[in-house]
Measured scan of single mutants.
Amino acid sequence: SKTSNTIRVFLPNKQRTVVNVRNGMSLHDCLMKALKVRG
Rank of each mutant, 00 (worst) to 15 (best):
K33G: 02
G39S: 13
R38Y: 05
S26R: 08
I7F: 09
M25L: 12
N13C: 06
I7M: 12
L31M: 08
Q15H: 01
R38L: 02
V21F: 13
N23H: 09
R22D: 02
S26G: 09
N23K: 11
S1T: 14
G24V: 15
N5I: 07
V19A: 10
I7V: 09
L27M: 13
P12Q: 02
P12S: 01
L27P: 00
D29N: 14
V9K: 05
F10I: 02
V9E: 00
R8H: 06
R22H: 12
S1P: 15
H28C: 14
V21M: 04
M32A: 10
K2V: 05
D29A: 09
G39E: 04
C30I: 06
G39D: 14
K36N: 15
N13H: 04
H28P: 01
V21E: 00
N13K: 11
R8L: 09
S4D: 15
N23T: 12
L11R: 00
S4T: 15
S1C: 12
L35M: 12
P12R: 01
K33Q: 03
T3S: 08
T17I: 00
A34S: 13
L31P: 00
T17N: 02
R38G: 00
K14Q: 06
T6L: 02
S26D: 02
D29R: 06
M25T: 13
N23Y: 12
N5G: 05
G24A: 08
G24D: 07
L11M: 08
G39C: 09
P12M: 05
A34E: 02
K14E: 08
F10H: 14
T6S: 12
N20E: 06
C30Y: 03
K33L: 05
K33E: 01
L35A: 05
R16C: 07
N20Y: 12
V37M: 13
S26T: 15
S4G: 10
V9A: 12
C30G: 08
K14S: 05
M32V: 11
K2G: 15
F10T: 05
K14N: 14
V18A: 10
K33N: 04
K14T: 07
K2E: 09
Q15R: 01
T17A: 06
T3P: 13
N13I: 08
V19T: 07
H28N: 09
G24C: 14
G24Y: 05
C30F: 04
N13T: 09
L31V: 07
T6M: 11
R8P: 02
T17R: 05
T3I: 11
A34V: 03
K14W: 06
N13S: 10
L31R: 00
S1N: 14
L27R: 01
D29Y: 10
R22C: 09
R22L: 14
N13Y: 08
D29V: 11
S1L: 09
H28Y: 11
F10S: 13
S4V: 05
D29H: 06
V18G: 03
S4R: 14
G24S: 14
K36D: 06
K36M: 06
K33R: 10
V37A: 08
V18D: 01
N5V: 15
V21L: 07
R16G: 04
V37G: 03
R16S: 06
N23I: 08
V9L: 02
N23D: 12
S1I: 06
T3A: 15
L35V: 06
M25V: 13
N5Y: 10
H28D: 13
T17S: 09
A34T: 04
V18T: 14
L11P: 00
N23C: 15
M32R: 07
N20S: 08
N5S: 15
K14R: 09
Q15L: 02
N20T: 06
V37W: 06
Q15E: 15
S26H: 05
S1Q: 15
S26C: 14
V19D: 00
V21G: 14
R22F: 03
A34G: 07
V9M: 02
L35Q: 01
F10P: 05
L27Q: 00
T6A: 08
V21S: 06
G39R: 05
C30R: 03
C30W: 00
R22G: 09
L27K: 03
R38P: 01
V18E: 03
L27V: 15
K36S: 06
V9G: 01
I7S: 00
K36T: 06
M32T: 11
F10Y: 08
R8S: 04
H28Q: 14
K2T: 13
K36R: 09
V19E: 05
G39V: 04
N20H: 11
S4N: 11
R22N: 15
R16H: 11
S4C: 11
I7D: 05
K2N: 14
V21A: 13
I7P: 03
M25K: 13
S1G: 13
M32I: 09
R38Q: 05
K14I: 04
D29E: 07
R8G: 02
K36I: 10
K36Q: 11
T6V: 15
V37L: 08
F10C: 05
R8C: 08
H28R: 12
G39A: 09
S26N: 11
S1R: 13
N20K: 13
S1H: 14
P12T: 03
A34P: 07
K2Q: 15
S4I: 10
H28L: 10
M32S: 05
S26I: 15
F10V: 03
L31Q: 00
V19I: 11
M32K: 08
I7L: 12
R38C: 00
K33D: 03
N23S: 10
V19L: 10
V9T: 15
T6P: 07
I7N: 01
V21I: 05
N13D: 10
R16L: 06
D29G: 12
N13G: 03
K33T: 02
V18L: 04
T17F: 05
R38H: 01
N5K: 10
V18I: 13
I7T: 03
V19F: 12
L11V: 04
T17P: 00
K2R: 10
R16P: 01
L31A: 06
L35R: 00
K2M: 11
R22S: 08
P12L: 01
K33I: 02
S1A: 05
N20I: 12
T6K: 06
L11Q: 00
C30S: 12
H28S: 03
N20D: 06
M25R: 12
T6R: 13
N5T: 09
G24R: 11
K36E: 06
Q15K: 02
N5H: 11
Q15P: 01
V18F: 03
L35P: 00
N5D: 10
K33M: 05
M25I: 10
M32L: 13
V19G: 01
M25E: 03
R38S: 01
K14M: 10
P12A: 02
V37E: 02
F10L: 06
T3N: 08
L31T: 05
R22P: 14
